[in-house]
């Protein structure tokens, strides 16, 4: 019978540092996926993931078993990734500009979609501002609740909810435009 995360953490704190490998195995996918969706680069995502696990290891004594370990480590992952992106001054479009230039963006997304062979949804997520992207991924891909996301990001729950709703609307509009443009593009291809 496999041990709980808290039992493994206790063993590590008592001196069995090698047991941390079990924690890494359990959460490497979650952490790496989040990092990759944020930074969009394999090597950078691995470096960040390694940094996140080292931070988690060094702060194991601060882990409160009242909360899920997955929530705790994703909090470290979110903060570390956002800090890394901000240090690199990754340009992300503010929300207002996103809405105003919707029609131009849609065309660019279609071209990008065909060139990169990515799904439309992946492209749309990559276009979101960093903070919105994090929340959408944490909620829909990692299954965290509003409360858990609020604890992970130190944002009030109302703000988390509002941002996720806005992010969904942006993604919905992007997806809608991509579908319409692709339908037109496909129609043109058929004519040719």
């Amino acid at each position: 019978m496999s041990q709980s995360d808290w039992e493994i953490v206790q063993r590590i704190i008592k001196g069995e540092s090698e047991s941390f490998g079990e924690i890494v195995t359990r959460y490497k996918k979650s952490v790496f996926s989040l990092c990759y969706r944020m930074v969009k680069n394999n090597e950078e995502a691995e470096d960040l993931s390694q940094e996140i696990f080292i931070k988690a290891y060094n702060n194991l004594k601060k882990y409160n078993p009242q909360y899920k370990f997955s929530t705790w480590i994703l909090k470290i992952a979110t903060n570390t990734t956002i800090d890394s992106l901000r240090k690199k001054k990754i340009e992300t479009m503010p929300l207002e500009e996103e809405i105003s230039s919707k029609s131009e963006t849609a065309s660019a997304e279609v071209i990008y979609f065909h060139q990169q062979n990515k799904t439309a949804i992946e492209s749309a997520i990559e276009g979101l501002p960093i903070e919105y992207r994090t929340l959408i991924i944490l909620f829909h891909q990692h299954g965290l609740s509003y409360k858990e996301i609020s604890e992970s990001t130190n944002l009030p729950m109302s703000k988390v909810k509002n941002r996720i709703h806005r992010a969904r609307n942006i993604l919905k509009d992007s997806l809608k435009d991509v579908k319409e443009e692709e339908a037109q593009w496909t129609a043109k291809q058929v004519q040719i």
Binding site: S17, F20, V24, K29, Q50, N58, T119, Q141
Partner: peptide
Amino acid sequence: SICDLPMLEPSDGFEMRVIDSIDH
């Protein structure tokens, strides 16, 4: 679509690299 996005995995040996990096 978001739920169907695959959970990606780091390269082989990731656990060993982490274990080698931590201060035991």
